[in-house]
Write a protein that binds this DNA or RNA. Sequence first.
DNA 1: AGGCCTGTTATTAT
DNA 2: AATAATAACAGGCC
Length: 283
Amino acid sequence: MPELPEVETVRAGLEKYVLNRRISSAHSYHLRAIKPSSISPLAAVVGAKIRAVKRRGKFLWFELDREFTLVAHLGMSGQLLISSKQLPDQSHLRARIELQKAAGLAGKKSASDEIRFIDQRTFGWLSIEQMHDQVPTSVAHIAYDPFEADFNLKEVITNISSRKSAIKPAILNQEIISGIGNIYADEALWRAKIHPEIICEDLSEDEIKKLINSAKAVMKSAIKAGGTSFDQQYKNVNGASGYFSRSLSVYGRAGQPCSRCSTLIRRIAFANRSSHFCPRCQR
DNA sequence: AGGCCTGTTATTAT
DNA sequence: AATAATAACAGGCC
């Protein structure tokens, strides 16, 4: 679930609660919670003040008043919740970052809270990293996402149009364009009326342009809806589900009629993933 | 009971 | 060398 719109929802939620807060303690509870390449144990963040919460694609990071930054990736099932310290630990709690009382909030409920990293399937991680060129080490190879000012539509079109793979794996490739996962890939392809298995080289530049603009548009709508939740795995920082799943046109709708032409939506297994598309709209 | 699944990356193949 | 395809990582749901 956590693709760009879900990660952005989490990022914005975190920003609201943790900006300029100081970290009073940090603990991890699972071997896989901290990325093996992390340059320090999680405890290195204790005493640091959170200066910003940034995101590129599906990666997010906390800028600190330190030489290093705290990076987070939610993987398949990760959550970052703002939680009262009083709440009992959730199952699959992988790490806890306690925040000092916010100035002027003494006695208030939000005065005593923490960030909890919860991850059932443990593909997510936290990591302490150096910054290079505005982004942490593990983000250096990730392409701009379409919401970044430096995202270059023309360059991405040129890149995709020279490839010999199918179009769907190309837009899922985080080194070409970041943020798109299986759900929004299927939705973007449906909006642009492109079959997921068409070879990149065989698409016109206009078709690729339409596809990228569709991806950006569908993700923008999803951010507005708080992201897509199918089960209990994707939550915003307050533990609430997003409601964009009701707006999906193809993903998870196999056997249901296409909203444009009423043809039944098909689901095929392809490149280790399932793809949903309208066999009539998407040739 | 076994197949399925939102993501990334290392390895292998071309 | 660069690009493409595949497998592996976990665990709980149906």
